[in-house]
Nucleic acid binder design. Structure first.
Length: 885
RNA sequence: GGGAGCAUAGCUCAGCUGGUUUAGAGCAUCUGCCUUACAAGCAGAGGGUCCGCGGUUCGAACCCGUGUGCUCCCA
């Protein structure tokens, strides 16, 4: 078999994904095993794969694949969210291109187009996830508007209404004038805007004099119903309880006093417009001020404004200023920078507005959800998000759940012509209810609410409703899979979604929805900017997969992303991933080369060689025994890191185990001489190690590991479902011996480098040690690694050589060439200085009585060892200096 | 205005229970190698005021206070 020079991912990836699907490895059915369940955060049906999804789903796939290899019944549920606002916007845009306006369509016609759109474009993202290797159980693909799911959402609304937790109320909301819809607070994005601050003079009503207020929204003057000052403000004390006249429209309004007003902003006097400002509304409630709604739902001025009726409020803002000036009410204009809210979806400037909306009262439902997280019944990773969560939950506000949209779950409220209403699952039921108080009513007269529910009002049911937890209560699936294990999501939706899922879990299932929540970071570009369509800084993920391979993309995004920290995405990380693929590929090539040779030779080495407690007689024995222990140790480390959701550290650890320990050390140590055959037992052992490495890496990089696993040997199974062996203990003695060997090799190579001894020039190595036996076991490896043609043991200094000290042992390198004694001396003096200072600091510590009294015994012992080692080392350096003469 | 978080090498970040650390990794940089698995590589090296100040402690990158700068969330 001829292996290509470099690893080529594309075909390999397609081949294995198809194979895994065909074998049904991703399909999960309840059985006697322990389940491990993850529900995907359903991407918008309108979504296309971006870096955020890539990170998020890589993590979920890693957790799921690992669980699958650990004997659990791994179930990862895919699906999409109907995303009411985003999808409706897309459909409206599509219709506009075809020359159709939404307002010309009936609701049913519009929904027809929307479903058509959803069937055609929705869920592209799910196909893209396959490219990434995500091992989702595709048979379970769910959608938040599936018929069962839809009915459950409606049932939840009716249930909460029945419990008195849903109410209808006129409240100040964020209004998107473009979409003509209410926005939740979370859908408003505040941006810094350069505005103007207008100072406007209001004349007093019943006497001479005036009061000047400052405003950035002069058009709202038409809706003013009071002026407010701080009661402590000396400038205005004489005006408390008096009246002023609103310019241009001559409305008489009271001057009130309240602490809310800050003394030093503007003039210290505030105009109060209860219908168009959140805080003014509060004031209005408190002082029972008149509410004058001067704006229509499209942002134009209403009849109540008296002036500029029908004109857009932003045009009016410009037009009203000259009028104020002409009438002598404008005092001055200042430049002013302030935060203004914009709609997340349409980017329209958000208007605070009074509107009749549906609300969920949150206080009660939030309590168990807060407790579960605070008591660590649900674990947040990283835990720092607990604080954020607590703060929000303790100050939770009611949830506005109605949206003026058609695409979504239609609010199950039905109105009689007189405005009274009933909440019911069907028109017929509503009719029955309404008839009680309206005996004359006919069913034709009642009308269903036109609005839809907030998207999150359906997705908060996701963890149980994908298993039909409400549609078929207590069914076998929900009993088995719920509560789920781990939720992986972005911290930006901790309140939108995570908190509400926890509430829904307790409210409707009497149980938490998941045990762990892993918060990923936000993916940013190299400059630290959030990746977004508008900035155009989001790379095309499929193109990246084509270029580097899915494994490399997964590696690149994972290696740089600690839990909860934002990641600055840089394509060089993908290169690193690709290079890692290539490294694995080349290690495979090396083994295949050895395999071809070993088949020609038969080995007479005892195949029963005990590698757990070997007596290392050959370099291969030592190398093999050492690597076995390294594997044991790293597996245990990785296991612990995964338990703590430190995925990037686990990956780094595996990367270093493979690249450094396996490739750079182990393979070099067992490498036979030029064109020499390899020992069959060593070869078999090496294949086994390589397989174990692939097993360890598989959850992170599924494709190449599966490919190599099968190319290494005939396999009866697939790596994808291979079951991990239990962890084994690592022998510290062998590990220590290995570390010493590495250290000696590096030190000697360094000495060669510094003395410009060419890699090809052999040296003679004299070792001065008290532990000759130790070195005898590894001297073949050592000789090969530092290109020594001779290794001898000595009890005294060897003159005319380069001296290297490692711990208490000394090494004399005989090079047969003239040494540059000046450089050597300088090096040694530098080292001597360092060691002496180090010794001093240790001695200072040890001579401190209080340290010796208070510190733990191990710490003191360690300091003593440091002292002894440094002392020995200083002696060696001094001797080397003498040696240089 | 309220809240949360961050500040460690040129860059991105580890450093978990205060002592194994006069601080680690990857990338970048520099030096030497086209050595027979791999130049997408190999062998090495250099690089730090752990943001400033004060405190607790025998001992602080780590704990406390304070100042500065940055980021995010909410109003």
């Amino acid at each position: 078999m001829e292996l290509t020079k470099n690893y080529i991912p594309n075909e390999v990836e397609a081949k294995w994904y198809a194979h895994w699907l065909e074998q049904g490895y991703f399909t999960s059915k309840p059985d006697e095993r322990e389940p491990y369940t993850v529900v995907i955060p359903p991407p918008n049906v309108t979504g296309v794969l971006h870096m955020g999804h890539c990170l998020n789903n890589s993590i979920q796939d890693i957790l799921i694949r690992r669980a699958r290899m650990q004997g659990k019944n791994a179930c990862w549920v895919p699906g999409t969210d109907h995303a009411s606002i985003a999808t409706e916007a897309k459909v409206v845009a599509m219709l506009r291109e075809r020359g159709i306006t939404k307002s010309s369509l009936t609701r049913d016609e519009f929904l027809g187009y929307a479903w058509e759109w959803k069937e055609k474009y929705g869920g592209i993202i799910l196909q893209q996830l396959k490219k990434m290797g995500c091992s989702l159980d595709w048979d379970r693909t769910s959608f938040t508007m599936d018929p069962d799911y839809y009915q459950s959402v409606i049932r939840v609304f009716i249930d909460l209404y029945g419990k008195g937790m849903i109410y209808r109320g006129k409240r100040m909301i964020n209004w998107d004038v473009k979409a003509k819809t209410a926005l939740s607070d979370e859908e408003v994005i505040y941006k810094e805007v350069q505005s103007k601050l207008y100072y406007v003079r209001y004349e007093l009503a019943d006497e001479e004099g005036d009061i000047v207020i400052a405003t950035v929204r002069p058009e709202t003057i038409l809706g003013d119903s009071a002026i407010c000052v701080n009661p402590a403000d000396e400038r205005y004390k004489h005006l408390h309880g008096k009246y002023a006249i609103v310019p241009l429209i001559n409305r008489r309004i009271p001057i009130i006093a309240d602490d809310y007003v800050t003394l030093d902003f503007g003039t210290g006097a505030l105009k109060v417009t209860p219908a168009h400002d959140m805080n003014d509304y509060q004031l209005g409630q408190k002082y029972q001020l008149e509410i004058i709604d001067t704006m229509n739902d499209d942002g134009t001025m209403s009849e109540a404004a008296q002036l500029f009726v029908g004109e857009d409020r932003l045009d009016v803002r410009k037009k009203i200023v000259p009028q104020l000036e002409a009438s002598g009410h404008l005092v001055k204009v200042e430049e002013y920078t302030n935060q203004v809210g914009f709609s997340e979806r349409t980017d329209a400037m958000v208007e605070p507005r009074l509107s009749l909306q549906w609300w969920v009262s949150m206080k009660e439902i939030a309590e168990p959800a807060l407790k579960a997280v605070m008591d660590d019944e649900i674990h947040f990773h990283p835990a720092k998000f607990k604080n954020l969560y607590r703060h929000w939950m303790e100050n939770i506000k009611d949830w506005c759940i109605s949206r003026q949209l058609w695409w979504g779950h239609r609010i199950p409220a039905y109105y009689a012509p007189d405005g009274s209403f009933a909440v019911a699952s069907t028109k017929e039921e509503a009719f029955e209810q309404l008839k009680i108080n309206h005996p004359q009513l006919t069913i034709e007269e009642i009308k269903q609410d036109d609005d839809c529910l907030d998207t999150w009002f359906s997705s908060w049911l996701w963890p149980f409703e994908v298993f039909k937890g409400l549609a078929e209560p207590g069914n076998a699936e929900v009993n088995y899979y719920y509560p789920t294990n781990t939720l992986v999501t972005a911290p930006e939706i901790i309140f939108f979604w995570v908190a509400r899922m926890i509430m829904a879990g307790f409210e409707f299932m009497d149980e938490k929805p998941f045990a762990d929540v892993y918060f990923t970071g936000i993916v940013r570009d190299k400059l630290g900017r959030k990746m977004s369509k508008s900035l155009g800084n989001s790379p095309d993920l499929l193109a990246l997969i084509d270029l580097y391979g899915a494994d490399a993309v997964r590696f690149g995004i994972m290696i740089a992303s600690p839990a909860g920290n934002d990641i600055l995405f840089d394509e060089s990380a993908l290169e690193q991933g690709r290079n890692f693929n290539n490294k694995l590929w080349n290690a495979l090539k090396l083994l295949k080369m050895w395999e071809a040779r070993s088949k020609r030779e038969t080995s007479d080495v005892n195949p029963e060689l005990n590698l757990t407690h070997p007596s290392p007689h050959t370099p291969q024995d030592f190398a093999s025994a050492w690597f076995r222990q390294r594997l044991n140790k790293v597996k245990a480390e990785v296991d612990e890191m995964m338990r703590q959701f430190r995925l990037n550290e686990a990956l780094k650890t595996i990367y270093s185990l493979i690249w450094d320990d396996f490739c750079s050390w182990y393979l070099e140590w067992i490498k036979p001489g030029f064109e020499q055959p390899i020992d069959a037992v060593v070869y078999a052992q090496t294949v086994a190690y390589f397989e174990e490495l692939m097993e360890l890496l598989h959850p992170f990089m599924p494709f190449i590991t599966e490919e190599i696993y099968h190319l290494l040997a005939e396999q009866a199974d697939d790596l994808c479902i291979k079951q991990q062996q239990p962890l084994a203990n690592a022998d510290p003695a062998i590990l220590e011996a290995g570390e010493l060997l590495k250290q000696v090799i590096s030190a000697l190579r360094d000495a060669r480098n510094k003395n410009q001894v060419k890699p090809k020039d052999p040296i003679k190595l004299h070792i001065q040690t008290t532990d000759t036996a130790n070195y005898r076991a590894i001297e073949n490896i050592l000789g090969k690694q530092v290109n020594a043609e001779l290794i001898a043991y000595t009890e005294t200094t060897v003159p005319g050589t380069i001296v290297v000290a490692v711990e208490k042992d000394r090494f004399f390198l005989e090079t047969g060439q003239q040494l540059n004694s000046e450089t050597l001396q300088a090096e040694l003096l530098k080292d001597l200085d360092y060691q002496q200072k180090f010794l001093q600091s240790v001695q200072k510590k040890l001579s401190n009585e209080r340290f010796v009294q208070n510190a733990k015994e191990e710490v003191i012992a360690l300091e003593r060892k440091k002292q002894a080692d440094a002392g020995a080392r200083i002696e060696t350096i001094k001797e080397s200096l003498r040696n240089l003469g």
